[in-house]
Design a protein around this nucleic acid. Structure first.
Lengths: 147, 147
DNA sequence: CAATAGAGTTCAATAATGGAACCCATTGGT
DNA sequence: ACCAATGGGTTCCATTATTGAACTCTATTG
């Protein structure tokens, strides 16, 4: 009667769900990407129970998205940073944010991320690496279709 | 002591977390996108408890990502379909899948989605809508940085 | 020498999940 | 006519997970 384990499913979406398929993980990653990095900063910013935060951080470290680094020896102090795996997940978060801006906030999207390269607020587009087209649901073949 | 409610947070990632921030919702959406649409098909394919599936489906319908359509009158039968909001979330799922293919499956990525337009297996790229560049963590300004 | 800060633990009380069994209206088979 | 099967859920109970508050421990500061 344990919580279902997706970590062995032969599907990347299931495996990703296994890593960040809970309410807090995406927010923890967002905060760390934004530069919050200590346990207490994360805890107060997210207002998550310290208990749960501990578990999420440990899990994300364990799966390789974060690393825990000691930044002070004498009073032992740590910070959490994104690994390369974690950094590459940030664009995925941005596609979520862009989708949310459109479908949840509609006319009043909240704070924005800046693209340093072009100095614009980021709107993320999902394109096919092969042909460069914007990916739309209608142009995909996702497998069996029974209806 | 209720589970935290992200639905009013001023952040799209939090709001999205509120909609699909659990283990099952992304998989339900994936299956429906792939053409599975009845309660029983979803239940047996995902091996989720019917209980939980009912809640997920109701929630996704309620927030507008799915709609429940009657396809038979006499024996009342229903199917679940993506709304436009739901369809536009599919590319977000694909960015997750592409990331998962790279970082979780590494050398042996699982089944693939076809891009009808170019006939390739989809590899999703996240680009800035403004300048067209591929978005990389290093070229983003995500807000306060304290470390 | 007491107060604070960082980084967690521990504990008890609520929620959420998982499994299995049950319901109800039709159909299909014998 | 009777019985099982199908689709689409409910209900109930046993486990897990999450929450909030309080508590540790070490080290630094006033």
């Amino acid at each position: 009667m344990k919580r279902q384990d997706f970590s062995q499913w032969p599907c990347s979406i299931a495996r990703v769900s296994d890593l960040i398929g809970d309410g807090w993980s995406p927010l923890v990653l967002r905060d760390i990407a934004a530069g919050l990095c200590t346990f207490n900063d994360l805890q107060t910013n997210l207002n998550v129970s310290r208990n749960t935060l501990t578990q999420r951080l440990n899990h994300l470290v364990q799966v390789g998205m974060l690393r825990r680094e000691r930044y002070s020896e004498k009073p032992e102090r740590f910070k959490y940073l994104l690994t390369e795996m974690g950094e590459e997940f940030v664009p995925v978060l941005l596609t979520m944010a862009t989708w949310g801006d459109k479908w949840i906030f509609k006319d009043a999207p909240p704070y924005k991320v800046k693209h340093i390269t072009c100095n614009a607020s980021v709107t993320a587009e999902v394109r096919c690496a092969e042909c460069g087209e914007i990916i739309k649901f209608g142009s995909l073949n996702l497998g069996r279709s029974s209806c």
